[in-house]
């Protein structure tokens, strides 16, 4: 096992940041810690790195490759940490930043100047910043800074790579490119990595495994496909993409959506792409709603509707399907869910 966290608690005053967290991160995987802000994901990452203390409880431990690292100094843990806002040394050049971890080595680990130069040059080539080694951080773009921060962390040949919101401060386009680049890099060097994100798309696209966190505990762990298609809770379903909440009853094996919120109503969660819109509904399997807005700029057609109680409904469909029916704003159509999910517990979206 790469990283193992056992029964970790953390409180800030009266706020519980982490509530008895345990998790395992297998060797060689790229794992996402996904959750809204305040869910404890960054705190957990910092505790793994040793930057934050945790409350020692019953049987709590942190293991790297099956060895406890609790009590080890941060430097001894040898994790590469990439900070959200890069935390590059502002008075040092790109070269000096990347060389830092090699230059502060003492005693037997000391390496020669030539060897440092060779390794740093290699890393600069890896992050595609050849020719920029003598620039200062404020002369670089956000994406370039992030790559320098990554190279600096890789320079110490870390056991693991921990990344705190690695793409959080970048604009959408740079984020896309850097995301793919990081995934390719990971496939190349196979370094066990954990990254924190609040962006579900980023987590699903990039990670081998996703750990969904909420309010200091883990909601669900699994592959992107598992957590997206088989969410264990309403929170996970809601957080991993937009979702509609319909009310109805099950009558003779069929769901009757009457959208009233009376007692004994069940809650049905439906993804926007798992809804059919039909002009007429002879079997009465859906419920009527009025089209409010149609958004066609994008790879799919997005349609917003509202039912008789002015509750909003979001539907997504392919452009082909949209053209088939020629829907217009103001049309009244029937909403027919093709797949519904029901959760036991109560969760308010």
């Amino acid at each position: 096992m790469g990283i193992e966290v056992k029964n970790i608690n953390k409180r800030f005053g009266k706020f519980t940041a982490l509530d008895n967290i345990s998790l395992k991160i297998p060797d060689g995987e790229l794992v996402a810690l996904l959750g809204p802000s305040g869910s404890g994901k960054t705190t957990l990452l910092r505790i793994i790195a040793g930057l934050e203390e945790f409350e020692a409880g019953y049987n709590s431990d942190i293991l790297f490759k099956n060895q406890s690292v609790v009590g080890n100094r941060i430097a001894e843990r040898r994790v590469g940490f990439v900070f959200q806002h890069y935390a590059l040394f502002r008075h040092q050049t790109v070269f000096e930043n990347i060389a830092f971890g090699l230059r502060v080595r003492r005693g037997v680990n000391r390496i020669s100047r030539a060897e440092i130069k060779r390794r740093v040059d290699e890393l600069i080539h890896l992050i595609q910043l050849d020719g920029m080694e003598s620039r200062y951080p404020d002369q670089l773009s956000g994406g370039q800074r992030q790559r320098v921060a990554l190279a600096r962390a890789l320079a110490i040949e870390p056991k693991f790579l921990l990344l705190d919101e690695p793409f959080g401060a970048l604009d959408a386009r740079v984020r896309q490119n850097l995301r793919r680049w990081l995934r390719r890099l990971h496939d190349e060097i196979k370094l066990t990595s954990v990254f924190v994100t609040h962006d579900q798309e980023e987590a699903l696209e990039l990670a081998d495994r996703v750990i969904v966190m909420n309010a200091g505990h883990i909601e669900q762990e699994g592959t992107p496909v598992e957590v997206f298609h088989h969410p264990k809770s309403a929170f996970v379903m809601d957080f991993l993409g937009s979702v509609n909440l319909f009310h109805g009853r099950v009558v003779a094996g069929q769901i009757v959506f009457d959208q009233s919120t009376d007692v004994k109503q069940e809650k049905f969660f439906v993804r926007p792409h798992e809804i059919e819109l039909v002009p007429t509904d002879p079997q009465n399997v859906g419920f009527p709603a009025k089209i409010r807005r149609i958004q066609l700029a994008g790879s799919i057609a997005k349609i917003e509707l509202s039912d008789h109680s002015e509750k909003e409904i979001f539907v997504e469909m392919s452009h082909e399907k949209y053209l088939l029916h020629k829907f217009k704003v103001g049309d009244t159509v029937s909403v027919v869910p093709t797949n519904t999910v029901v959760f036991e517990e109560d969760y308010v979206i």
Binding site: A49, L51, I74, A75, R78, V79, G80, F81, F83, H85, A87, L88, F89, R90, F100, G101, V104, R105, R106, R152, A153, A155, I156
Partner: peptide, 16 residues
């Protein structure tokens, strides 16, 4: 303290 934290994760001691 971010830069200091970064330095510590890179293996620097207090003096460095």
């Amino acid at each position: 303290t971010l830069e200091e934290e970064a330095a510590v994760t890179l293996g620097a001691g207090g003096w460095d």
